[in-house]
Every structure is written in structure tokens, then in C-alpha cells.
Design a protein around this nucleic acid. Structure first.
Lengths: 115, 115
DNA sequence: GTAGCATGCAACCCTCGAGTTGCCCATCGA
DNA sequence: TCGATGGGCAACTCGAGGGTTGCATGCTAC
């Protein structure tokens, strides 16, 4: 690992995004709202502990932040690493897809000194 | 997997991108060149069969295409699904990150009818 | 045609991710 | 104060992913 955004941080992000439940959570948080583990478990087909594990994975990947509010914990989206992941995709596919090429240019400053 | 671009196709893409070796392969193919399993295995710390499995995963995710050329198999990058994945990221993080918002607008037509 | 190189396929470990149950701690409210 | 609710922690099971070895197949070159 090297700096702020080490080479395998993007790997952690992609790993987190590989799971259906975790993507569902992120889509849920996409509007900027917060959510509690209990509320999530209520609308998912898994137990609260399973949800808690997923949230821990998302937090470890830097995709969400948690904050205590009384006796409940609120999770919020943190889009920074999502931008990093998008930049990686643009860097790889930019020479092939014209839209990704524009995205690559758009996110260019993020890619400097990656390897 | 179901059809052309089912809702969980993006999941397969993220799963494929979650592995270090597979991302290395895609970076290697990012310049548009082709590569054979043997050539890849020569510059990776795993066996040829392991590389073959990774290539199979990448192909299943629609990220590479393979074509036979004599007795060797050449794999080439297929950036379509990468664009899909970038669109998903932009859709989720677009309301929080200004750059992702512009990306979301850029890739907007890809997102229609996702759910 | 025959040796040799590039792959493909199958069977087999071994680790770890995803989920569960059970128990304990903290906080809110009557 | 004390019951009830939201969460965290630990131990356990189960299945699949990543890796390996071994063998079969197919094309090339001599």
C-alpha cells in the first residue's frame, strides 16, 4: 500500500459492490438519507446481524460512514471511493468506449500516480 | 445470469473486478492488445490453469472476448459492461459527488429501466 | 507422422465469505 | 427503576472461490 488511495483500495470497493445485498443498501442510501441496521433488516430477507456484517464491509471499503444517534446507529453514503472506482474503470476502458474516454478525461486528476 | 443486461449483470462485473489478478489482466488489455493464457501466466505468480479460470470469469462477466488463432487463444477487452458498471456507480453516487453527477448525466441513457 | 507447444477439462484441497443463533450491553420511556 | 428496543460480539455451519496437479486434445513444425 502506498498513499491515500492505495492500489488495492479500489479492490475493496469492487469487492463490496459485488454483493447484491450491499448494492441494495447503497442504492437505498443513494438519495442521501441515513439508515439503521434494523430498518434495513426489516426490508431485506436476512437477519439484522447479516446486515450488520454487510455494513461493516461497506464501512471498511470506505463507502459508508456511521454515526451514533442515541441508541441507534445511522449509516450514510460516502461517495469518494465510488469516484475512485469509476476512475479505474474509465482508465481501463477509456481507449475503447468513447463515453468512458470522456469520463476518463473528466476524472483524470484522480488517476494520477495510481501505479 | 439471464439475458443481455439483467439487473445482476452489473453484479457479475463487480465480482470480476474484485480480484487483483483479474484487474491486472484488464489493465493489461486496456491498451487494446490481445493476450494468451500462457503469456499472462508467464508474468503472473500463478499457474496457467488459474489464469484460465480468471479469464473464464472475465468472459462470463462479458468483460473479455476470446478468439481462436491457430493453436493459441487470444483474449481481448470488451468495454461494454464496464460502461454499465460505471453507470451504476454514477447513478448511486451522483447526488453526492459533483463529478459523478456529470458522469451520471453523461451515461444517463444507459441507466434507463435498470430496476 | 511425430514430437512439442498451447489449451482445455476434471478432480482435488483449503481458505474465507455469507448467514445463522445465542448472549450481552446501552439507551429510551413509562 | 425497570422493561423494552437497537446494536455489538462470538461461535458455528455451509458453500463457493482461488489455487493446484494430472491428463486429454489440437494445432504446428520438422
Amino acid at each position: 500500500m502506498r498513499l491515500e488511495t492505495p492500489a488495492d483500495a479500489v479492490g475493496n470497493v469492487f469487492f463490496a459492490l459485488a454483493d447484491d445485498t450491499r448494492r441494495h443498501v447503497l442504492e437505498r442510501l443513494g438519495d442521501g438519507s441515513t439508515v439503521t441496521p434494523n430498518a434495513l433488516a426489516a426490508q431485506l430477507p436476512v437477519t439484522r446481524q447479516a446486515v450488520a456484517k454487510h455494513l461493516a464491509v461497506l464501512q471498511a471499503a470506505g463507502l459508508v460512514t456511521k454515526s451514533r444517534a442515541g441508541r441507534e446507529t445511522r449509516y450514510r453514503l460516502q461517495p469518494q471511493r465510488l469516484t475512485d472506482a469509476a476512475a479505474w474503470i474509465a482508465a481501463v476502458g477509456g481507449q475503447w468506449d468513447e463515453r468512458l474516454a470522456r469520463l476518463d478525461k473528466l476524472l483524470g486528476e484522480r488517476r494520477r500516480g495510481r501505479r
